[in-house]
């Protein structure tokens, strides 16, 4: 029995070190996404479903944000001083042609490795806005359901639809 536990723990540690750790961002987003999906499927309360939906969307946002991240990279705003201090050995004085003929000699050649990829982050600003809009519409609909049915529990709503016990607007 003790042997079994030891082997099991060893396997788990091996799995975490070799499989989970190198792709930690993917694992975390998948776990979050599954939590959100579980909330969507298993929860009966409409508001809890919406919380699940939010977690689901946030997991995808997290995935995108992790795409743009690089080790030792900074925000993608070109800063002459930061560029100079970071790695003077690598960065060479810029030739005018490298800057498209516009260089005044002050700028250095830009090393893209020093900057995080801004595109996924920018995309996620849009996706967050979309998510907020969806949540807003969903909450408004949930409120209107509550007004008509007097409850937010899914099974009670289905029961009331069957019996016809709800506010009719005709």
């Amino acid at each position: 029995m003790v042997d079994f536990i030891e082997i099991f723990v060893e396997r788990v540690v091996h799995f975490i070190e070799n499989v989970v750790q190198p792709h930690f961002n993917y694992w975390s987003y998948v776990v979050l996404m599954m939590i959100g999906l579980w909330g969507l499927i298993a929860k009966r309360n409409l508001i809890k479903k919406l919380i699940g939906l939010s977690i689901f969307q946030t997991a995808i946002i997290l995935f995108y944000v992790s795409l743009g991240v690089k080790a030792d990279a900074t925000i993608p705003v070109f800063d002459y001083e930061a560029e100079k201090s970071k790695s003077a050995a690598v960065v060479l004085p810029a030739e005018p042609s490298e800057m498209g003929g516009k260089s005044d000699g002050k700028y250095k050649k830009i090393d893209p490795d020093h900057y995080a990829n801004p595109l996924p982050h920018v995309l996620m600003l849009t996706a967050i806005v979309v998510g907020v809009a969806t949540l807003g519409v969903a909450l408004a609909v949930a409120q209107s359901i509550f007004k008509d049915f007097g409850t937010l529990e899914e099974h009670e709503i289905l029961e009331k639809i069957k019996t016809g016990d709800y506010v009719k607007h005709d």
Binding site: L46, V141, I145, F149, I157
Partner: peptide, 19 residues
């Protein structure tokens, strides 16, 4: 729509559509 059943259907559609 004026039908409360439509609102419930819209809620389900929101969940499915967003997923």
């Amino acid at each position: 729509g004026s039908s409360p059943r439509g609102t419930v259907a819209a809620f389900n559609y929101i969940i499915m559509g967003t997923v």
